[in-house]
C-alpha cells in the first residue's frame, strides 16, 4: 500500500511518466487552403508501424482550433500512439462539403506519411468532439460518399479503423432552425434536403462500418444524448461493434467534479477518467496498443 502511494506521488510530481514526444507543428495537409494544417505528435522511441489517432475539434463547424486537443494528443503520444490534431475550413468561409472533405484529406495525408512518421496506415482511429464528433462519424460511415471525396493531393482514403465520437451530432435534421447548421449545410432543408440527409451520419449506417465508441453526457442540452444512443442502436442493428459511454450529469462543456460534487466548466465528456478508461480499452480492441 505504501509503495502504491509512492508511485502515485512520484507520477504526479513528475507530471507524467510517458515517452518523450516530438512535435511537428502546423504541417499543411492541403496546400490550397491556409486553414488546412495539422500538428503531429511522434513518440520518440524508434518504433515503427504504431497505431495512430487523429483528433478533429468541435466549435459548431464555425469556430475552434486543433489546439483544443493538444493535451489529449500529447497524452496518447506519450503512451506510444502517433497522434495528430487537425484544423479544417470553417463556416462561413467554407460550407458544404468542405469540412468533411478536409477531414478525409487529413486522414489520407496522415496515412500517406505512414513511413515518415512510423505509423501503420491500417491502424488509424479518429476522435472528435461535438462538430468534430459529427465529422469523424461521417468518416466512419460515409467515406465513399461522392460529395465528400477529397480532391487534395493525398487523395481519397478508406474509412478509419475505429471511430470515437464525443457528443457528436448524428442526425443534423433536428437542427433545421439553427443558423450555424444551415450555414454549414449551405441551405435550408427545403432548399437542399439531400444535403441534410447526406450530412447525417445515421442515414449512412452500414454493416461494414468500423467499430464506434460514443461518449456523451446525459445532461447535454446542446447535442442531446439521444443522438449517440440512436446512432449506437442503428450500428448495432447493422451488426457493427458500437459502444456507448453515457456520463450522468455531464453537459456539453461541463462535468461533475470528482470527489466534491462541484460542477467544472470547460470539462468535456472525453476528459473524465471514465472516458479515458473506455477510450484506451476501445483503442486496444480496435487499432491495438503501441
Amino acid at each position: 500500500m505504501r509503495r502504491r502511494w509512492l508511485v502515485l506521488a512520484t507520477a504526479i510530481a513528475a507530471g507524467g511518466c510517458g515517452r518523450d514526444v516530438a512535435t511537428r507543428a502546423g504541417v499543411p495537409y492541403d496546400d490550397r487552403f491556409g486553414a488546412d494544417v495539422m500538428d503531429v505528435y511522434l513518440p520518440v522511441d524508434g518504433a515503427t508501424a504504431r497505431p495512430a489517432v487523429m483528433f478533429i475539434h468541435g466549435g459548431g463547424w464555425s469556430a475552434g482550433s486543433r489546439d483544443h486537443h493538444t493535451d489529449h494528443a500529447t497524452r496518447l503520444a506519450e503512451a506510444g500512439y502517433v497522434t495528430a490534431t487537425v484544423d479544417y475550413r470553417l463556416v462561413p468561409t467554407a460550407a458544404y462539403p468542405a469540412q468533411e472533405q478536409d477531414a478525409q484529406c487529413a486522414l489520407a495525408f496522415l496515412r500517406a506519411h505512414a513511413t515518415d512518421w512510423g505509423l501503420d496506415p491500417a491502424r488509424v482511429a479518429v476522435v472528435g468532439y461535438s462538430a468534430g464528433g459529427h465529422l469523424v462519424s461521417l468518416l466512419g460511415v460515409a467515406s465513399d460518399e461522392p460529395d465528400f471525396q477529397p480532391d487534395c493531393a493525398a487523395g481519397p482514403t478508406p474509412p478509419p479503423q475505429a471511430v470515437i465520437s464525443g457528443a457528436g451530432p448524428q442526425d443534423i435534421r433536428i437542427w433545421t432552425a439553427i443558423d450555424s447548421v444551415r450555414d454549414m449545410v449551405g441551405g435550408s432543408i427545403d432548399a437542399v434536403p439531400e444535403r441534410w440527409d447526406r450530412l447525417s451520419p445515421i442515414t449512412h449506417v452500414r454493416a461494414d462500418a468500423p467499430p464506434f465508441l460514443f461518449i456523451h453526457g446525459s445532461s447535454d442540452w446542446i447535442v442531446p444524448v439521444a443522438q449517440s444512443r440512436d446512432m449506437r442502436d442503428a450500428l448495432v442493428a447493422a451488426g457493427v461493434d458500437a459502444r456507448l459511454l453515457e456520463l450522468a450529469g455531464d453537459g456539453h462543456l461541463t462535468g461533475v467534479g470528482g470527489a466534491s460534487g462541484r460542477e467544472d466548466l470547460g470539462v468535456i465528456s472525453i476528459d473524465p477518467p471514465e472516458a479515458w478508461l473506455a477510450l484506451t480499452d476501445f483503442l486496444a480492441d480496435t487499432v491495438g496498443t503501441p
Binding site: A11, D71, R75, L76, A79, L265, G266, P273, W276, T280
Partner: peptide, 27 residues
C-alpha cells in the same frame, strides 16, 4: 461557491495528465 480547480489523473496505462477548470457548486 466557485473557484479554480486543477486535477491530475494517473493510472489506466496512461501517463499522468493535469488539467484545470473553473468550478462552481452549491452545498
Amino acid at each position: 461557491y466557485a473557484g479554480l480547480a486543477v486535477r491530475t489523473d494517473t493510472g489506466g496505462g496512461l501517463p499522468a495528465w493535469t488539467r484545470g477548470s473553473l468550478g462552481y457548486g452549491l452545498a
